[in-house]
């Protein structure tokens, strides 16, 4: 299998963002969406999923990432917009209630599914994609920082992990790869 991957990666043109084909398990999750209903990968079947971890009180990475992904979706032709789903997973369930998540997702000009889960499930999900999160000390106002992944995991229509968007990637690069993935 490794050999096939190697041959495949040698033959095809390189991707502009990070190719992670074969490195990670396929898309699988159990979350609670903003309306309190449960959400799993089956609900997003057939769509390209852009998965990112964060929290709504995030001062920098999350708003930047989401704004970038929203811009990315606006670049897609109308026929493809429906085929791409942004999934924001909050790793701060203590502060991020369904209402908070709904308000936060509404700030961005794109349809974003914002969801969270129990600490155990969140830990299992982040471990599955080999990332982590941790909570900083709370300040006098009770505010605490959450360290979390700054990448965006891209799964294809079959749920296979294909690409990783990193903070340095431009919207142009992401758009080029996404269009290629949707072909």
């Amino acid at each position: 299998m490794l050999l096939t991957l190697l041959v495949a990666s040698c033959n095809s043109e390189p991707w502009q963002t990070r190719d992670i084909s074969g490195l990670m398990p396929s898309l699988e999750f159990q979350l609670s969406a903003v309306n309190g209903e449960s959400l799993s990968e089956a609900d997003l079947q057939g769509r390209v999923v852009l998965l990112l971890f964060g929290y709504t009180s995030c001062p920098d990475i999350c708003p930047t990432n989401l704004a970038q992904l929203a811009a990315l979706k606006r670049r897609l032709p109308a026929s493809q917009v429906e085929a791409v789903q942004i999934l924001f997973v909050s790793v701060d369930p203590q502060r991020d209630s369904p209402t908070t998540l709904a308000t936060f997702a509404g700030y961005f000009e794109a349809e974003i599914i914002a969801a969270t889960s129990t600490p155990d499930r969140l830990r299992a999900l982040s471990r599955r994609y080999r990332t982590t999160f941790s909570y900083g000390e709370a300040d006098a106002d009770g505010f605490y920082e959450v360290t979390h992944s700054s990448g965006v995991y891209v799964f294809d229509q079959n749920g296979a992990a294909r690409l990783l968007f990193r903070p340095g990637d431009s919207v142009e690069q992401m758009a080029a790869d996404l269009t290629r993935l949707l072909k």
Binding site: R130, T131, G136, E145, T147, S150
Partner: peptide, 12 residues
């Protein structure tokens, strides 16, 4: 090694 930036560090 930006993989640690992307995946998050165990502590800041």
């Amino acid at each position: 090694f930006d993989v640690y930036d992307v995946c998050g560090r165990a502590f800041p």
